[in-house]
């Protein structure tokens, strides 16, 4: 698995392909990211690259982290994330190197991870896609309920029963999103379809796990 990149979700729009097909795309401001730390099996027990994305003023950085950035001799970044890689892959990069959006090709597929929009305490209709009880035939005060949650035997609620509760604000990965365009000079990535989270939120982009090397 090759290295990924960090980015910021900018919003959605529609574009036309050369053949006239209209596609909805999410615009992501991806990278450039700096390699801040290189973890190795000898010192850390696994191989990984720590990437930094976004600018942060030096006086806003917490003191323990200032030393971390100083050691790598790079400007402080807003977001830090690790990408676990094989030794061969991580040896391609050194501390201080830049990872750019050009690591992805037009037509390839990516997996995108981000924090989804928080929805608070929600009912079963929104949270688990339950069907709605009938609105007529004498139904009253029972229009969005989930119905029965069990039966007389075993006289308890089965574990994992889908019920109302907190929904959203969780890490979500969307797999196999097609890269529609890569705009190198503006560090932009256009992917087909929706990406979890609100605009301006941080996203983590990797080569698609289930479609490595596949091109459309």
């Amino acid at each position: 698995m090759s290295v990924g990149i960090l980015g910021k979700k900018m919003g959605m729009t529609q574009i036309f392909k050369e053949n006239g097909e209209r596609v909805s795309v999410t615009v992501i401001n991806a990278g450039p990211c700096t390699v801040i730390q290189k973890k190795t099996e000898g010192t850390d027990g696994y191989n990984a690259l720590q990437l930094g994305f976004g600018e942060k003023k030096l006086d806003k950085v917490k003191r323990p982290l200032t030393g971390h950035f100083k050691k790598a001799n790079v400007k402080p970044s807003k977001n830090l994330k690790e990408f676990r890689l094989s030794k061969q892959e991580s040896d391609k990069f050194n501390v201080g190197d830049e990872v750019k959006v050009t690591i992805f090709e037009k037509g390839s597929f990516v997996d995108i991870t981000s924090k989804s929009k928080g929805r608070g305490f929600t009912g079963v209709l929104k949270r688990h896609n339950f069907g709605r009880p009938t609105m007529s035939h004498g139904t009253h005060e029972n229009f969005r309920h989930g119905g029965s949650i069990g039966c007389a035997t075993p006289a308890r609620v089965i574990k994992g029963k889908k019920m109302p509760g907190h929904y959203g604000n969780a890490i979500v990965t969307i797999q196999n999103l097609e890269v529609v365009d890569v705009i190198e000079d503006k560090n932009l990535l256009l992917v087909r379809g929706a990406v979890p989270g609100s605009n301006q939120s941080m996203v983590r982009i990797r080569q698609a796990l289930k479609k490595p090397g596949v091109k459309k």
Binding site: G11, I15, V27, I183, K186, L188, L190
Partner: peptide, 11 residues
């Protein structure tokens, strides 16, 4: 806005 910039290139 970056979205408008993208749209302009495809318009």
């Amino acid at each position: 806005n970056i979205i408008n910039v993208i749209e302009d290139t495809y318009k």
